[in-house]
Computed example of a mutant assay.
Amino acid sequence: MTSPQSAVLTFPDVESLADLGTYVARAKGLDPDGAMRLQAVGEVLAAWTCAVPGQGLMRSGLVLALRTMPLAGAHELDVTVPLGGLSDRFARRSATGETGTSLPVPPTTVSPQWAGVTPPRGGWEPVGEVSTEALHAAAEQGIAEIAQGAPEGAGSAAVAMLRARVWAREIEGGAAAGAGLAVKVLGFARAGDGQVARVFRSGAWTRVSLPAGHVLTR
């Protein structure tokens, strides 16, 4: 871990900042020891987190989630920080009744392997569509399958292999089941809302896109 110079993200309104807080809380529920990569360019923040870390040097089975939100004024930032550090800041805001639109970025950074893997910016071709019902169903089935197949006392390597196999499974529209996990847990869509996500592919990557965010798998 390192401690970079302090940085501050400034949002156009309290609602946009609260949106990031909700996203952080949901990501922490998925992985309490997880991290979030904050990439700010100009007036846009791209907030990345990992739903499934993948395996091997190529991080096969990796599932990344991305939400973008507006910023006020020009920013330039690319750091990966613990979710715990971010959630502490939001908890402090809540406890003190803070209503400002600026968020100090935690000074402690981390270097999870997934943060060094950057999906392609271009070359995305549409390959299909997947309903939010199918995404939620895949998530629920996968969670149940992992719970049943990884009983208490199971080795971490065996559990990791099981998770990778379950979440890499292809579902409707060419999406991976792991995309369903991210959509469900991170709140990108609700079951039964009638939404349909578009599915794109670029090389080894697949992207499931909804208005609330994107899930990228490889």
Rank of each mutant, 00 (worst) to 15 (best):
V166L: 06
A158I: 05
H75P: 05
A175M: 15
Q148S: 06
A72T: 02
H75S: 09
A115P: 08
S111H: 10
V81Y: 00
V130Y: 02
L64M: 04
A182R: 01
A72Q: 05
T109H: 14
P112K: 04
L103K: 01
R59W: 00
R121E: 06
W114Y: 11
P120Y: 13
T80P: 02
R165S: 11
E152G: 06
S94K: 10
R59F: 14
G153R: 03
G122Y: 04
P120R: 01
V110T: 12
A139W: 10
P151G: 14
T80W: 13
M69F: 08
P53M: 06
S102Y: 11
D78N: 06
V105P: 02
E133Q: 11
A177G: 01
M58P: 00
A179N: 02
A147W: 04
S156W: 05
V183I: 10
E152N: 12
A91E: 08
A150C: 07
G100R: 12
A160F: 06
G180I: 12
V63P: 05
W124Y: 07
A137T: 11
S111D: 07
V79K: 02
E133Y: 13
T99E: 10
L83A: 05
E172L: 10
R92G: 08
P106W: 02
G54P: 07
G97Q: 00
S111Y: 11
V81E: 00
T80Q: 06
G84W: 09
S131F: 08
C50D: 05
L135I: 04
F90I: 06
E172R: 09
F90L: 05
W167R: 00
L83G: 03
A74R: 14
T101D: 04
E76S: 15
P82C: 07
P107H: 12
V52W: 01
A46M: 10
T49C: 11
E125Q: 13
S94W: 11
G122R: 14
L83H: 12
V63C: 15
G123F: 03
V183A: 15
H75Y: 08
A65P: 07
M69R: 13
G149M: 02
R169V: 03
A139K: 04
A179M: 00
G84K: 05
A179V: 03
G116M: 07
G153L: 10
V183H: 00
T99P: 12
L62V: 01
G174A: 12
G149H: 09
A46Y: 15
L66D: 02
H75I: 09
A179C: 10
L135G: 02
A168P: 00
P151F: 08
A179H: 03
V183Y: 11
M161R: 14
S156L: 14
I143D: 13
E133F: 14
E172V: 15
A175I: 08
A47S: 03
A177T: 02
E172W: 06
P151L: 09
G178M: 09
A138K: 04
P106D: 09
L62Y: 01
I171S: 13
T118Q: 13
G84V: 13
R92T: 10
I171P: 11
